[in-house]
Simulated scan of single mutants.
Amino acid sequence: MTAPLLELRDLAKGFPVRDAIGRRRGAVRAVDGVSLAVPKGSVLAIVGESGCGKSTLGRLALRLIEPDSGQILFEGEDLRTLSPAALRARRRDMQLIFQDPFASLDPRMTVEQAVAEPLRLHRIVPRAQETQRVAELLSRVGLRPELARRWPHEFSGGQRQRIAIARALASQPKLIIGDEPVSALDVSVQAQVVNLLQDLIRELGLTFVLISHDLGVVRHIADRVAVMYLGRIVEEGATDAVFRTPRHPYTRALLAAVPGQGQGPAALLEGDIPSPIKPPSGCRFRTRCPHAQAICAEIPPPLAGAVHRAACHFQDSLPAAPAARETDAGGERLRRLQAYFTDQKQRTGELA
């Protein structure tokens, strides 16, 4: 197996909860003991309901927020032990693409200034070559170089996200984390951006962590999938294995909510996610699980398995999940849209 570029070991982060006059009343355990490895050149998707902690995990991995405990190993080096200067130098190798393309670009900076900022910060190229390098980056993401002197408000959402991707590529990173990079875009534009990301991953040999709730996009682009619930990983494995033979009841419920996935309505969940301030004892999913038994309230299930892992006491004895369809609706939708817009690009040379 390829050595991991990024490895998280027992990572945890809590946020204090205070009352109206500022007194601490508890803490939300947004990430609670997460361990993951991301091999070089692979695409790992982190999925789960809103509020499960996946975006917090992405920011912890880049040390944009400080964990309470655990290790963040990048090429074997623990980022938590680095000095501010050493961490700043390391950031050249790690970049983040944010969800909202309308908030991630400074409205006071032109496109050229925004994309050139990482070039100057990390001294990638001499000052005299910055304009040429910005033009190359814009061309790589499908934008005309002459647009570099325009302002962010002059672009559509899809074009802004392309600019954000160009900015992330400027430092020549080894790892990119995409936090819902296409969820704020129109469906037609999503296909273009997903197509672009796939091309960049393949051509540049990037390692990519995709944080998403769109299982159609995940199945189309990811090599492996990690499923989160209330701050913990409940299932992790190869994308095809997780979609075809999910081993955790929560994963089955997520797949059942996807039109055309073939899991059937029986796996759909009832009720809301428990409070993250006071999660259930034992297995955190037990209050919504149709297979829960007494042991589930007493002992937290370990994330067990050799390659395809799940945190369920009964993962080997659960009733067989209905077989998923060969092609999921979301992935097929993306493929059709990608083919259409590839043809449009060839005809007109324009992208949204």
Rank of each mutant, 00 (worst) to 15 (best):
P249L: 06
V194D: 09
A184K: 04
L254C: 08
L210M: 14
A164C: 15
G282F: 13
S188R: 08
F243N: 02
R144F: 14
E235D: 10
E154V: 10
R162K: 11
Y229Q: 04
H213E: 06
R247C: 04
R219A: 15
I221T: 13
G157Y: 11
V193Y: 12
H153E: 09
Q192W: 07
V187C: 12
D272F: 13
A170K: 03
T251F: 04
G178I: 01
A256N: 03
R252E: 02
G157S: 06
A256G: 15
V217I: 14
G205Q: 10
G260V: 08
G282M: 12
N195C: 12
G216T: 00
G264I: 04
A226K: 05
P152A: 12
G216Q: 00
V194N: 03
V193E: 09
A222C: 08
G237H: 03
Q190M: 08
A170Q: 07
V227Y: 00
P279K: 07
L200Q: 11
S156M: 12
A166F: 04
L255F: 03
E203R: 13
I233K: 04
A257I: 00
S212V: 03
E235M: 08
A222V: 03
D214S: 08
R167W: 07
R144H: 15
Q261G: 13
D179R: 03
R167S: 08
R244W: 06
I176V: 15
P181K: 05
I176H: 08
Y229V: 04
V193S: 10
P145S: 10
G142R: 01
T239Q: 10
I233P: 02
V187G: 12
G157D: 05
L197E: 10
G260I: 03
R219C: 06
L255D: 02
I201G: 13
L255R: 01
A166P: 10
L175P: 11
R167D: 13
A238Y: 02
I277V: 15
P249V: 00
Q159L: 08
V182R: 01
G158N: 10
A257C: 09
A222L: 06
H153Q: 13
Q261D: 12
S156H: 10
T245I: 13
A222S: 14
T207W: 02
L215W: 02
L206S: 11
V218K: 02
L230N: 04
E180S: 10
A168V: 09
I163L: 12
P259C: 11
A266R: 05
I277K: 12
P259G: 13
S212F: 01
G216L: 00
D214H: 06
L169D: 09
I211V: 14
G216K: 00
T207Q: 07
G178E: 03
P265C: 09
A191K: 06
A257Q: 02
P246W: 01
G216I: 00
R232F: 11
S275L: 09
S183H: 02
D240R: 15
V209N: 05
S281W: 14
R252P: 05
P181Y: 05
G205K: 08
R247W: 00
Q198K: 14
V187R: 08
T245D: 15
I201V: 15
R219K: 13
E235S: 08
A238F: 04
V227N: 01
